Simulated assay, not measured.
Amino acid sequence: MLLNVLLLLTAYLLGSIPSGLWIGQAFFKINIREHGSGNTGTTNTFRILGPKAGTLVFLIDFFKGTLATLLPILLHAQGISPIVFGLVAVLGHTFPVFAQFKGGKAVATSAGMLMGFAPAFCFYLILVFTLCLYLTSMVSMSSVVAAGAAILGALLFPTIPFLLTNYDLLFTVIIVFLGIFVIIRHKENIQRIVKKEENLVPFGLNLTRQIKKK
């Protein structure tokens, strides 16, 4: 019991590492919260600090979700599903104790959690995200679509079966929760998409005809 409590706390602290904020302050003397969208996650880091910093932030945010999920397996803890530890890391990423509980939008760390618990399902969502990114040129739209695909996949795939061979109630509940959570976290992005004002990446088809900012 004590080991699980310590590992859950460790998972939260791992998730709470505000990589974008710390990298911006340490190497660029920039508080990323004061620029762009004000978010500390991967997309705003790419936009403000550049691709090298953005890639590093993505990798850190992704693998802290994976590591948190694997903690109980690596340390032979029993009684709590590894996905719960991953979920705690995602909540830490979103509400980080090291950054006044104002964190990212949960996408990269959620993906990392899935890589540690259900890698085939994770690769399916990466494919959905990548295809949508090419078609729309929007990270936000791709994140929302991938979140929706995660919900549908968790509910429908075990009936086929495809990627998920059977229903795991806890897994299904967590994926549905996180999918809805990610969509809600992108509420402002969705509003900009409707207005044709969302930020674009410099590639892809921009099928929704967002107005490119000069």
Rank of each mutant, 00 (worst) to 15 (best):
I80N: 12
P82W: 04
P82K: 06
I83W: 08
I83H: 05
V84D: 04
F85P: 05
F85W: 08
A89E: 00
V90Y: 00
V90S: 00
L91W: 01
G92L: 04
H93F: 00
T94W: 03
P96H: 05
P96E: 09
P96Y: 02
V97E: 02
V97C: 07
F98G: 03
F98W: 11
F98R: 04
F98D: 00
Q100D: 13
Q100V: 14
Q100L: 13
K102N: 12
K102T: 08
G103K: 03
G104F: 04
G104T: 04
G104E: 04
K105G: 01
A106H: 07
V107F: 02
T109Y: 00
T109F: 00
T109A: 02
T109P: 01
S110N: 03
S110G: 03
G112C: 03
M113T: 01
M115F: 08
M115W: 01
G116W: 03
F117T: 03
P119H: 04
P119I: 06
Y124D: 07
L127I: 15
V128G: 10
F129Y: 12
F129M: 12
C132I: 13
C132L: 13
C132W: 02
C132Q: 12
C132A: 14
L133P: 10
L135G: 04
L135N: 07
T136H: 07
T136P: 12
T136E: 15
S137C: 13
S137N: 13
M138I: 05
M138R: 14
V139D: 11
M141K: 09
S142P: 11
S143G: 02
S143F: 06
V144Y: 02
V145F: 09
V145C: 07
A146Q: 04
A146P: 02
A149K: 14
A149D: 07
A150G: 12
I151Q: 03
I151M: 11
G153A: 10
F157P: 03
T159H: 15
T159I: 14
I160S: 01
I160E: 12
P161E: 02
P161V: 05
F162S: 09
F162M: 10
L163G: 07
L163K: 04
L164M: 09
L164N: 01
T165M: 14
T165D: 15
T165Q: 15
T165R: 15
N166V: 13
N166W: 13
Y167M: 13
Y167T: 15
Y167S: 15
L169S: 14
L170Y: 08
F171W: 04
T172P: 12
V173W: 00
I174Y: 00
I175F: 07
V176Y: 08
V176C: 13
L178E: 02
L178F: 07
G179Q: 06
F181Q: 06
V182K: 12
I183H: 06
I184H: 11
I184R: 10
R185Y: 04
R185E: 10
E188Y: 14
N189V: 14
I190R: 05
